[in-house]
Design a protein around this nucleic acid. Sequence first.
DNA 1: AAGAGCGGCAACCGCGCTACC
DNA 2: CGGTAGCGCGGTTGCCGCTCT
Length: 365
Amino acid sequence: MGRAPCCDKANVKKGPWSPEEDSKLKEYIEKQGTGGNWIALPQKAGLKRCGKSCRLRWLNYLRPNIKHGEFSDEEDRIICSLFASIGSRWSIIAAQLPGRTDNDIKNYWNTKLKKKLMGMHMAPPSHHHHHHQRNSLKPPPFPSSSHHNYQNQPLIPSQPLSSLFKDLSSTYNRSFSSGFEIPHLSMTSNNFSNSTTNSSLFPTQECLVGSMQYNNYPVKKNSNQNNLLMFGSEGSCSTSSDGSCNQISYDRESNIKQEEMVFQSFDQDQNNQPMMLNYGNNNSGCSTGSAGHDHHHVINQWCERPDGFDHLGAENTLGYCDLEDVKQLISGGNNLNISVNGSKSNSLFSNVDENKTEEKVMYFY
DNA sequence: AAGAGCGGCAACCGCGCTACC
DNA sequence: CGGTAGCGCGGTTGCCGCTCT
């Protein structure tokens, strides 16, 4: 039994939007707002479009402060860093780049950035089949929600992440040895009614990934009392648990997405302690430092800190990871060594709930 | 000059999640 | 508590312009 269509497909227009449709939609939303119901919106606005189509058009093209055009080197770097860390979570990546949409970034990655990175190390395909080889550089398997899983991807390492960053480094004539960025994803919590989060309220734990020790990232437990892998803003070094969060909120004015994420449920470890994975570095620890860069404005709107520092607090605000550490992570069969709460594990996902995934080892493609 | 191939991007599609009834 | 509507996301497709042969 299939799902009922969201609209009457026979009576909706498809294809490119005309300027008239654009102005109708823009005008309606600017005056009336979305009303929290995209399905009903096109009829109210006098558009023969599917609600989903309207939403997409608004979010990707019509809403204020949308940035089109060339991506800066800094934006490239952020995209690459986050992609290397969390994979194709475009909406999350987009949240780090004000004015950019997930669709924009996705397209940019698929058509340009990926090739830029691959250019020096991978021979171009002999035959180009449009749209069919774009995913040849696969993201790292990400302990995703059930929404998207990577467990069915073939375990065939083809592109060491280290070389990927080597490419990037040479491309931009800079070294990533002190600037490899770790995902930095701010959160809000259901426990807080407003949008601003004091990130220090989130519990964190220490964790070793390869030679890197990470201890800045908060962890939360979901309502099922499973343990969650979360990337997040800096926090205290304490441990606690609270409710779940898993929603995207929007800046009231710009509709720019703000993220709060629950990524993956983990089993408890052998000591019956909550398991988590933090990203950080031996040297960075819970350090603080200079203020953030422009691309963190979105985050900073939501994760204010009284000291004025950004979330990871250092010059590179997303965290640090020495390139050698990255290489180390990639080497040895692309197998990450993880230590959680002092107990070593030889793969990132060895503690993943086996009912949810069969994949035990993190590979980079 | 023409057609095939390629690249870029807007838009569509299907599905998971969640709030609501 | 199950069913359903709506939302949001990532993957995919279609179209169009440019380049190459």
